[in-house]
C-alpha cells in the first residue's frame, strides 16, 4: 500500500496548494446520500430478481434497462443537487477548476477532447447510447471523494455527472463544472 499512500499524500499537497480541502461534514453528508442511493439501487435489484428478470438474459442488457427504469421511477422527483448537495458542490467546483487550471494546456485539451458534447442533461437521463465515455483524469479522481463501485464521476458536456455504471443512468449533475478552455 506504500505507493498508494505516497500518491494520496502527493495529491493532498496538490489539493492544499490549489483548493481548499473539503469540509468533512459536507463530505460525510455527500457520502450519506451516496449510501442512500446505493440502498435504493439494491432494493431495485432485489425487486427485479423477485419479478424474475434474469440478470444474464441478452448479455445483461434487459436487466440493466429494467434496473434503469426501476431506479428512474423510484427517483422520479430527484433534482439536481440531491447528491451534489449545496455544501459539497462549491468545493467540488473549486477543486475541479484549480486542478484543471494547474495542468498544461495540452493536458487540458487532451482531457476535453473526448468529452461528449451534450447540450441538455437532466437527472435520470440515460447516458447517450453509443457515445464514448470521457476518460476521467486519474489525478483528479484521487482528489474527489471516493465512490462505491456502482457509481462513477464522468464529464458530459461541461457537466460533472454521477453515473450509475450498470444502469447507465445519470444520477446527479453538477452543471458548468468545466470552464471553457480552448
Amino acid at each position: 500500500m506504500s505507493i498508494i499512500l505516497a500518491l494520496l499524500l502527493s495529491t493532498h499537497t496538490v489539493l492544499t496548494e490549489g483548493a481548499t480541502p473539503m469540509d468533512s461534514v459536507a463530505v460525510t453528508l455527500f457520502q450519506d446520500r451516496i449510501a442512500e442511493y446505493v440502498t435504493l439501487r439494491h432494493q431495485s435489484t432485489h425487486w427485479l430478481s423477485l419479478k424474475g428478470v434474469d440478470p444474464d438474459a441478452s448479455d445483461g442488457v434487459a436487466f440493466r434497462r429494467a434496473l434503469a427504469d426501476t431506479i428512474r421511477l423510484a427517483r422520479r422527483r430527484a433534482q439536481p443537487g440531491n447528491i451534489f448537495h449545496s455544501a459539497i458542490a462549491p468545493a467540488i467546483l473549486q477543486l475541479l477548476r484549480s486542478e484543471l487550471a494547474a495542468r498544461q494546456p495540452e493536458e487540458r485539451r487532451a482531457i476535453f477532447a473526448e468529452v461528449p458534447r451534450v447540450l441538455t442533461l437532466r437527472v435520470n437521463d440515460r447516458y447517450p447510447a453509443g457515445d464514448p465515455v470521457a476518460t476521467m483524469p486519474a489525478g483528479l479522481l484521487l482528489l474527489l471523494p471516493p465512490l462505491p463501485p456502482e457509481l462513477q464521476y464522468r464529464f458530459l458536456g461541461r457537466t460533472l455527472i454521477l453515473l450509475d455504471v450498470d444502469a447507465n443512468l445519470v444520477v446527479d449533475v453538477l452543471p458548468y463544472s468545466l470552464p471553457r478552455y480552448p
Binding site: 498508494i4 476518460t135 486519474a138 484521487l142 463501485p149
Partner: peptide, 13 residues
C-alpha cells in the same frame, strides 16, 4: 484505464 480510481489502484497494488 477509463477510470483509474483509488479502489482500482489499491487492488492493483
Amino acid at each position: 484505464s477509463n477510470y483509474m480510481d483509488r479502489s482500482q489502484l489499491t487492488w492493483l497494488e
